[in-house]
């Protein structure tokens, strides 16, 4: 609070120095106290939350490798037996192979089908472009249940359900639009003058793609492919609906086991969860590594 000051009567050009009468500056005690309280409580809250997150992750891992763990702080011993048992009992290797086949195939198909579209979206302006972009966004903003159930009923009626083809094809529903959005920034950042140059040198559309566009976006495609791959590795709802006993992805298999799991020892189930966690972590780190690598290469 500062009192209103009367207009200074003096007519001097130089500023009036009245420093001596100035009130000393003072901190607000209440403000200091509040700020201190806010900081302390934030730290407590954050550390608590992170302890839980880390504790949870650690608990799964320890439990999967623990011999006996009941009410003590740490397991009494460590073993890979549960892990091996889970791996054998549920044919994890087999399901892992199936998952990789499905996801890899679907990733490649998604990329191939979406690239031409991405090119048009990045280079051409046309009336319904915004609407089209909106449309491509729908499959991953709408709840997947809305299309998953009718797709399942259709697939069962035409015999695509419980087949590898069926599982690959349903992955495209999210795969194609997802790869459109993930590739778009890479293609948009390409310099169109390179294409004009190529065309002026007589390159056909096909040659243009093959020789000019594709080589430039290889780093982008690699990074995108890993992200699409992770996304599909996690596809759940629709796979659960159309999977058969022998054509399941890893996460659906794990889920099915967990769902009816009254009899299994928890260590076994945690080992199973771990088999799902390891590839996910691996691919996430790979994605981070590739994107930092490509950014370096592009000089960003």
């Amino acid at each position: 609070m500062r009192a209103e000051k009367p207009i200074i009567e003096e007519e001097t050009e130089t500023p009036v120095v009245k420093g001596k009468h100035q009130k000393p500056l003072r901190n607000s005690k209440k403000g200091k106290l509040l700020q201190g309280g806010y900081k302390t409580s934030s730290w407590v809250l954050i550390l608590l939350f992170l302890t839980i997150v880390l504790g949870m992750t650690l608990a799964v891992i320890l439990s999967a490798f623990g011999e006996e763990w009941y009410g003590t702080i740490f397991p009494e011993g460590y073993t890979v037996e549960w892990f091996v048992n889970a791996w054998q009992a549920y044919e994890v290797g087999e399901y892992f192979k199936i998952t990789m086949e499905i996801v890899l195939t679907a990733t490649v198909i998604s990329l191939v089908l979406s690239l031409p579209t991405v090119y048009i979206l990045a280079r051409r302006d046309f009336p319904f472009k915004q609407a089209l972009l909106g449309f491509f966004q729908m499959p991953f903003t709408l709840p997947d249940l809305l299309y998953a159930i009718p797709v399942a009923s259709i697939f069962y009626s035409i015999g695509l359900a419980e087949t590898m083809t069926g599982l690959i094809v349903v992955n495209l529903i999210v795969g194609i639009p997802f790869s459109v959005f993930i590739l778009l920034p890479y293609v948009e950042s390409l310099d169109p003058r390179l294409e004009y140059a190529a065309q002026s040198l007589g390159a056909s559309k096909f040659k243009l793609f093959q020789r000019v566009i594709i080589p430039q976006i290889v780093p982008g495609i690699t990074a995108s492919a890993i992200n699409i791959f992770i996304r599909m590795f996690n596809t759940f709802t629709i796979i659960l609906l159309i999977s058969g006993p022998k054509t399941q992805t890893l996460n659906v298999m794990v889920f099915s086991v967990l769902q009816g799991s009254g009899s299994q020892p928890p260590a076994m189930l945690n080992s199973l969860a771990l088999t799902l966690m390891i590839p996910l972590l691996f691919f996430s780190f790979l994605s981070l590594w590739v994107s930092s690598f490509t950014q370096k290469r592009l000089g960003k």
Partner: peptide, 8 residues
């Protein structure tokens, strides 16, 4: 993802 977090 959700399945692992559930187990955790």
């Amino acid at each position: 993802g959700s399945i692992i977090i559930d187990m955790a």
